[in-house]
């Protein structure tokens, strides 16, 4: 099932904010239809890594990115239209962000950006994405209430539905479970297991066991560098050469 073709090829990536370097010398590839887990303690540079991929540095003057990030064969900084790049990449944030629009408009936001106007087509997308995000049954009767007033767990699934509505090539999740209850976390994990059939997923997580449950391969970030990247199985079976990785996985720090 895991295609070996790489859709994202990162070479010698470094990220700095002003004079402070938060990530340096990261080289890795993300393969089609895999879930790549990224684990590591806070401040390891995981979130900055995701932001570099979808060019969020364009909105933050102090963020400086060097190295290459080939996405679909072209360096993300060589894309003429960074907005078109971001439309290919879905993002789920640590804290749920239901936009202050109706539930329907939240999910129809990205399709509308892509130029879809027909009501029937939007209806279909909204229902399909909300179903895939395991939220449809809870909100189908109040699609016109504000997305920003849903519960935290519902907002996080709404964010996932929104990301899916982009029909993304790559889905990036940044510690999605940090602010939601365990039941929601399990439901979202089930959703992700199904989604790996269709897209590539980068899962940054604060829960080591979540990476073990979901990821095909796992990278361990620590203090602004990538310590190692290997198959999740080998990493968790203790076949690691790095004592820091073992210590982190076994919960001795972080």
């Amino acid at each position: 099932m895991n295609g070996s073709e790489s859709i994202l090829d990162v070479r010698d990536l470094s990220i700095a904010y002003g004079s402070k370097t938060v990530l340096s010398g990261v080289t890795l590839d993300v393969r089609e239809n895999e879930i790549l887990g990224i684990i590591g303690p806070a401040g390891a540079g995981k979130t900055s890594f995701l932001q570099a991929i979808n060019r969020m540095d364009a909105f933050n003057a102090s963020m400086k990115v060097t190295g290459t990030l080939n996405f679909l064969g072209r360096d993300v900084r060589a894309w003429r239209n960074a907005y078109a790049l971001r439309r290919q990449i879905g993002v789920v944030f640590p804290l749920p962000v239901g936009l202050p629009l109706t539930v329907y408009d939240n999910v129809a936001f990205a399709p509308r950006l892509a130029g879809k106007r027909s009501r029937a087509e939007l209806d279909e997308i909204v229902e399909r994405c909300l179903r895939r995000a395991a939220l449809w049954d809870e909100v189908k009767d109040r699609l016109d209430s504000l997305g920003s007033l849903l519960s935290g767990g519902q907002q996080q699934r709404l964010t996932i539905a929104r990301a899916l509505s982009q029909d993304p090539v790559l889905l990036m999740l940044d510690e999605f479970s940090i602010a939601v209850d365990p039941v929601t976390t399990m439901r979202i994990e089930d959703v992700l297991k199904e989604l790996r059939q269709e897209m590539t997923i980068i899962l940054v997580t604060n829960l080591v066991q979540q990476a073990r449950r979901l990821a095909d391969r796992t990278a361990f970030f620590l203090d602004g560098r990538m310590v190692e990247l290997g198959s999740t199985e080998s990493l968790f079976n203790g076949e690691t050469l790095f004592p820091e990785t073992r210590d982190y996985i076994e919960g001795r720090f972080g």
């Binding site: 859709i7 679909l72 072209r74 003429r80 907005y83």
Partner: peptide, 18 residues
Amino acid sequence: MRASLSTDRIDRAWIVDR
């Protein structure tokens, strides 16, 4: 794989934003 590089062109939204 979806042929997605083709979307990388200057579109109306980009121009309007400028």
